[in-house]
Write a protein that binds this DNA or RNA. Structure first.
Lengths: 189, 189
DNA sequence: TTGATAAAACTAATAGTATTAGTTAAAATA
DNA sequence: TATTTTAACTAATACTATTAGTTTTATCAA
């Protein structure tokens, strides 16, 4: 028969396959049936690794959030101020564009309140806080700024993914202008 | 047997029921089975009104977009400048909050490129353009601004819906500050 | 090396889903 | 009143996740 994979090596393999499936065909195609077919196993076998489809979605969400976080950290290294803000913004948008299914997965956890999901998301928020700190926003303004930044980045990512920007106008340029305008406005408020 | 409903009255009835289902339990619960149960008919009967689940989702998306547009128009009447911008922004956020499932539906059309869906969405973009016109942004800046406004509003709506804002800080206040900062920054760019 | 344990695959069966085909009854229309 | 159309229905199919119980394989201990 086919060889049995080792423990601990299996889960990342499955997540990678699920990620590919998501990126190529969207999260709605990430079914246990499709995933099992891609891995050449029978669907029930997946229950040895995940707690069903909800369990898979949760793990895939965390996987995606961590991968996104890594990209953002890389983008934030060695830069500061406006440059850092633009750098992580572009990294965020590019991640969603390059891994559309994985980005989709980060928002499809069955229970976003789950500790592990929460923590993976919190690291990204924390990074945003750090990058925004150099702008010295006072009091609650810093908190509103974090929300604004997240909303802008997610808004652009989601709308681009849904084909919301039809005009022949560079989306990256739009993000740059909007982010710069936003932070300038927050400082001068 | 049970009485047959009249034509033309049936589709809005079904969409209203589907909308309630979506708002109460999320779009993933808007199945032909659940909808049929709510309407006291058998699932195949729905095929007399819609082209299956994709057809229902398309019609529900248009229904939601038109309802959203109406709310935005109402909010834009008799106001201008910053006041108009804030008014439609709040109306947008409140719509997504009050009809979470319907808002979700506006983004779940099987083919967002479809003419009717496109048109329903275009009216909202058009309204945004009108509201932003009073700020006299030059050239492409106006186009970037429309994208920015949409992204901010959708970003806030989506993240709030996913439970993304955990801090005890008024989300409406965040929207107000971010929108004002954004437009001020665009003017002063 | 051998025997026990645990991991991870399997088959079989169940329940729920959309969907299609073909049928029937009611309503609208000529 | 007769015909046509509308919109319901039943029955059947094919897919989905999921559970239960089984078997094979690898790991680990004596």
């Amino acid at each position: 028969m086919s060889p049995r994979p080792k423990i601990g090596l299996e889960i990342p393999t499955i997540l990678e396959a699920a990620g590919e499936l998501a990126n190529q065909h969207g999260m709605q195609e990430v079914t246990l049936a499709n995933l099992a077919k891609k891995l050449n196993i029978r669907p029930p076998s997946l229950y040895n690794h995940f707690d069903g489809l909800p369990g898979l979605r949760k793990k895939l969400a965390i996987y995606g959030l961590e991968k996104l976080y890594n990209d953002l950290v890389t983008a934030a290294i060695g830069v500061s101020g406006n440059e850092a803000l633009l750098s992580i913004s572009k990294a965020y948008i590019h991640f969603a564009r390059k891994y559309p299914g994985l980005y989709e997965a980060t928002l499809m956890a069955p229970d976003p309140e789950e500790m592990e999901v929460q923590q993976a998301g919190a690291k990204i928020v924390q990074l945003s806080v750090q990058v925004l700190q150099s702008f010295h926003l006072e009091g609650d303004l810093a908190l509103h700024a974090v929300r604004g930044l997240r909303s802008i980045l997610h808004g652009f990512s989601a709308l681009e993914q849904k084909g919301g920007f039809k005009m022949s106008l560079d989306v990256d340029k739009s993000v740059e202008i909007v982010i710069i305008a936003f932070i300038k406005g927050m400082k001068d408020l």
